[in-house]
Amino acid sequence: MALQYYLILSALLFTIGVIGVLIRRNAIIIFMCIELMLNAANLAFVAIGRELGDASGQIFVFFVMTVAAAEVAIGLAIIVSVFRHRETINIDEINTMKG
């Protein structure tokens, strides 16, 4: 299977993630879409790494996963504390910092 198909698939998954971030108003779903985008990037890393015969692509996926795990922990903590104060996680209602 050629590299181009994996890159197209990766591009599609990334775009679905971007559209999700733009159209959804629920902060948790937006978070999930960010995870989707990170995974699309991981797929591109592994596919290109195989094409070039270099395992660094796979190593980078581990670092992306670690950062994603840290990001999820922090992000969900922020969502939980926002929910405690506001009783909502709809991002249209959390707009105090709006310029």
Binding site: Q4, L7, I8, S10, A11, L12, T15, V18, L22
Partner: peptide
């Protein structure tokens, strides 16, 4: 916007 982004990303991938 997403469709435009997908088109660009696929172009770069190719």
């Amino acid at each position: 916007l997403g469709i435009v982004l997908a088109a660009e990303a696929i172009y770069i991938g190719l």
